[in-house]
Each structure stands twice: as structure tokens, then as C-alpha cells.
């Protein structure tokens, strides 16, 4: 419980630091990043409603599809994957990479929606296919970004550039949490309590790591001047 609340706290700090960073560097990708952090915080707070279904005033939801908050998590997932795939587009200069990422986003959106419609488990667990596809596409986007970094001279100043920190965080987060999400249907104390504790430990640990990296990134880039302005405005 406390661990869960602590994560919300971390997210809030990350959002606020991001806001602070945005004051200094008002570029469009930073705007979307801070917006996304805000949405994340808000959506996680909203997800807490499931706690009140069992122990509180929302008990009338018990037995309905909305008893658990997986449906909300699935919607948030899709937005999250789409954000990460498109965030790194701002920092690419090769036209073919950008075109590929655009097409791939559309494909991902279609596949996710199809999965939601046809799997029937939208309210019961995290959608597995869109999780795997989303993770792989995020990797692709980050790979394009890293190759671009290699080819330019900006790799010398990479410690000061914010997208690098975001990429490291996103990479670790998606790599480690996707396998757990695939088994999200086992997340129930009546089926396998040891899995529940493993799940919670890993997810919380990775979340702490992710938001720490974000906060560190914002703070470090706040102190030094951003050498890296996005190449164009979409």
C-alpha cells in the first residue's frame, strides 16, 4: 500500500521537475513529455478507485466489468506506447526513419483496437499482443534515435541531452515490465500469492528506477544548457 503510494509520489515529483525544466526549455517534445507525465500521474491516481470498490464507497461496482481497473490500464497502455514511439521522432533527421515510425504507429493503433474488440478480455487483464508489439516498436524508435546519435557529433554531449535519459528509462522499463504484464491474469491473491508479491516487487522497483532516471535527467539538463534542439516542428 505504502509502496504503491510512494510510486505516485515519485511520479508527481517527476511531473513537477519536468514542468520546471519546461520553464527553461520550451521546446515541443518537452511539452509533450511533461504532458505525458501529467497524464500518467492523473491516470494512476484515477486507477486507485479499484481500492474503494472493496473497502469503500464504490461497492456498487462490485461484480461489474469495472470492478478491476484493467480497462483503464489498457487505454493508458496504448497512449503510453504511442507517446514513446513518437517522442523520439522529434530528434530524428532521416526522413525514412520518420516515415517508418509513422506507419508503424498507425499499424500498432489498428492492431490494438482489433485486439480489444476481439479478445474479449479488455476488462480482465492487460492486452498481451499490444504489449509485445508496443514494446518492440518502442525499441525500434529508440534504436533509430541511437543510430542517429552515433552518426552525428551530439554523442559527445549526450549526458546533457534529455531524450537520452528518457530513452534509457523507457528501454529498461518496457524491457522488464512487459513479461510481467503478459501474466497479468495471474495477479490475484486467490490464484498465486507468491506471483502477486513478485509482480509487485518488480513493478515497483522498475517504476522507482524509471522515475528516478526522469527526475535525474530533468535536473541534470536543467543545470546545463540544452545542446540539442529538435530538428523541425511537426
Amino acid at each position: 500500500m505504502i509502496a504503491g503510494l510512494l510510486i505516485q509520489f515519485f511520479e508527481l515529483i517527476a511531473f513537477l521537475t519536468g514542468l520546471l525544466y519546461y520553464q527553461k526549455n520550451k521546446s515541443t517534445p518537452t511539452f509533450y513529455l511533461v504532458w505525458f507525465l501529467g497524464i500518467t500521474f492523473f491516470s494512476e491516481v484515477f486507477s486507485w478507485y479499484a481500492y474503494f470498490v472493496n473497502n469503500g464507497f464504490l461497492h456498487f461496482l462490485k461484480g461489474t466489468s469495472f470492478e478491476t481497473n484493467y480497462w483503464w490500464g489498457n487505454i493508458y497502455s496504448i497512449i503510453s506506447y504511442l507517446f514513446y514511439i513518437n517522442y523520439f521522432k522529434w530528434y530524428l533527421s532521416s526522413k525514412s526513419s520518420i516515415v517508418i515510425l509513422n506507419r508503424v504507429s498507425v499499424v500498432f493503433l489498428i492492431v490494438s483496437i482489433l485486439e480489444i474488440i476481439f479478445s474479449g478480455e479488455f476488462f480482465l487483464k492487460f492486452m498481451p499482443i499490444s504489449s509485445i508489439l508496443g514494446t518492440l516498436l518502442v525499441f525500434l524508435s529508440i534504436a533509430f534515435y541511437y543510430l542517429e546519435l552515433l552518426k552525428s557529433d551530439l554523442i559527445l554531449q549526450v549526458q546533457k541531452s534529455l531524450p537520452f535519459y528518457v530513452s534509457v528509462g523507457a528501454l529498461i522499463f518496457h524491457l522488464c515490465t512487459t513479461p510481467l504484464f503478459l501474466y497479468s491474469s495471474y495477479y490475484s491473491n486467490s490464484i498465486d500469492p507468491s506471483f502477486v508479491s513478485l509482480y509487485r516487487q518488480v513493478i515497483f522497483g522498475i517504476n522507482y528506477l524509471l522515475y528516478s532516471i526522469y527526475i535525474a535527467g530533468f535536473l541534470i539538463c536543467l543545470r546545463k544548457k540544452d545542446p540539442y534542439f529538435p530538428k523541425k516542428s511537426f
Binding site: P128, I129, I132, T135, L136, F139, L140, A143, Y146, L147, L150, L175, T178, P179, L182, Y183, S185, Y186
Partner: peptide
């Protein structure tokens, strides 16, 4: 089905990282 998906996931990730390392 989850186990199959997990296997697919791991294979895909390993493949991806191998190809990426070579290209890099």
C-alpha cells in the same frame, strides 16, 4: 497461451537486440 507469448516475447527481444548491436 501466456507461456507461448512469453517465449515469443523473449525471442523477439533477443533478436532485436542482436540485430541492433550488429548495425550499431
Amino acid at each position: 497461451p501466456q507461456e507461448k507469448l512469453l517465449i515469443v516475447y523473449f525471442i523477439a527481444v533477443l533478436l532485436f537486440f542482436t540485430i541492433f548491436s550488429i548495425v550499431f
